[in-house]
Amino acid sequence: MDLFDDLPEPTQSACGASVQKSCPLPLEDRGAKRKRETPDYDLVEEQKLEEKKVCKGSPTLKGYVAARRGEREEMQDAHILLPDMNTCLTSLPLTVSHLAFFAVFDGHGGARASRFAAEHLHRTLALKFPKVETENLDKLVKKCLLDTFRQTDEDFLKKASSQKPAWKDGSTATCMLVVDDMVYVANLGDSRAVLCRMEEEGQGGGKKCLTLALSKEHNPTIYEERMRIQRAGGTVRDGRVLGVLEVSRSIGDGQYKRIGVISTPDIRRCQLTPNDRFIILACDGLFKVFSAEEAVKYVVNILQDGSIERKNGQTEEEGLYEAACQRLANEAVRRGCADNVTVILVSVSF
């Protein structure tokens, strides 16, 4: 199966934990840049690219998060919200005007792998993101995500192995990078990302809610995952690697890396349209008690409720999304999920 399978093309074209809103510049990118003399024809081309950036329709994204410990002794989830990732980079290709990044990490065996990924993965991504103009931006963004996951995993395993005793933590990862109006979702494990898209329903003029999966689950019961583990000398018992590990791809889990557990993410791409309302990123704690369609419909129903009380300074829309995110996490706990539950709700507007 092609790692880079894209989602269907859009049907309509378009002309709790702390929330981190910015990040310092990577050390490697700090310092003065040498000014170069630019010929007149280069200036003309740069002006054309700048005009293209202005005309390109970039959505406005706002992130909301709810985290619940459930019945676990420790909160092992971590997350990050960067609606403006431009602050992490010193330069961007001229055709790119805006970056955003949202991610949820579901730890197991401890919270160190998930917290490490939440702190470091986006910084590594900023270092590796293309900085010059290129015709192959899509290909380079995907390569950048693959390299970022590999580097984050290697960096954590190096730190984990240096401890005494060595850390055995691991973490899933579901990361959403938005480049202008293009969404790239890279994921490991069983945390998931789903998109709510509204579509016309017949000739009546009404709209129906369509749920699109933006991620792919990785567990050892899936044929391709099980075969890789068995070829590497591992076994799958009771749906788990060696009867213990519930996922087949992760960051960390050093003791399982030699038997086929990998940190290579699946990557899916989707262009946002004015019909898109929101994206849910959540750990499996939510999806143990909600199907993707149920979670999306639950949020839609709350967004249609105009009686929500909002915090000071919030708009009505912000209050609705905040309430929907918090209530979705609460409902997962109420339905009996004993696991940690972390939900990120990202509103989309053009």
Rank of each mutant, 00 (worst) to 15 (best):
V289S: 05
L281G: 05
I279W: 09
L272A: 00
E309V: 13
N301K: 15
N275S: 01
A292I: 00
V300D: 15
C283A: 04
G313K: 07
S291I: 11
E309T: 15
Y298Q: 13
I308L: 03
G285K: 09
A295C: 05
I308P: 06
F278Q: 06
L272F: 10
K288A: 08
D276G: 03
N275R: 14
Y298F: 12
A282Q: 13
Q271F: 00
A295M: 01
K297H: 12
A292R: 14
V300S: 15
L303G: 13
N312M: 07
K311P: 11
D305Y: 03
Q271H: 09
G285T: 05
A292V: 05
N275D: 14
C283H: 07
K311I: 01
N312A: 13
D276C: 06
E309M: 00
F287G: 02
S307F: 06
E293W: 10
D276T: 03
D284H: 13
Q304S: 13
D284M: 02
V296D: 12
L286C: 08
E293R: 09
F290R: 09
C283Q: 03
I280L: 08
G306S: 12
I302W: 01
I308D: 11
A282F: 03
Y298K: 15
I308M: 15
Q271V: 05
F287A: 00
V296E: 13
D276Y: 03
V299C: 08
F278R: 10
L286Y: 10
A282L: 01
L281C: 03
N301Y: 06
A292G: 08
N312W: 07
N275W: 01
V299G: 09
K297G: 00
F290L: 06
D276R: 03
A292W: 04
S307K: 15
V299F: 07
L286P: 14
D276I: 00
Q271Y: 03
L281P: 15
L303M: 05
N275K: 09
I280S: 10
E293D: 14
R310T: 12
L281D: 14
I280D: 08
I308F: 02
E294V: 04
P274D: 12
I280E: 04
F287S: 09
E293F: 04
Y298M: 07
A295N: 13
F290H: 11
E309A: 02
L281E: 14
I279S: 01
Y298T: 13
V296W: 07
N275V: 00
N301W: 01
I302C: 00
A295P: 14
E309P: 14
D305L: 00
P274F: 05
I280H: 08
V299M: 04
Q304A: 02
D305Q: 09
E309Y: 15
F278S: 06
L272M: 04
L286S: 11
I308C: 11
K288M: 07
D305G: 03
V299N: 09
V299A: 01
G313C: 08
K288L: 02
L286M: 05
K297Q: 15
G313I: 07
A295T: 11
E309W: 10
L286E: 08
F290Y: 13
K311R: 15
R310G: 10
C283K: 07
L303R: 06
G285V: 06
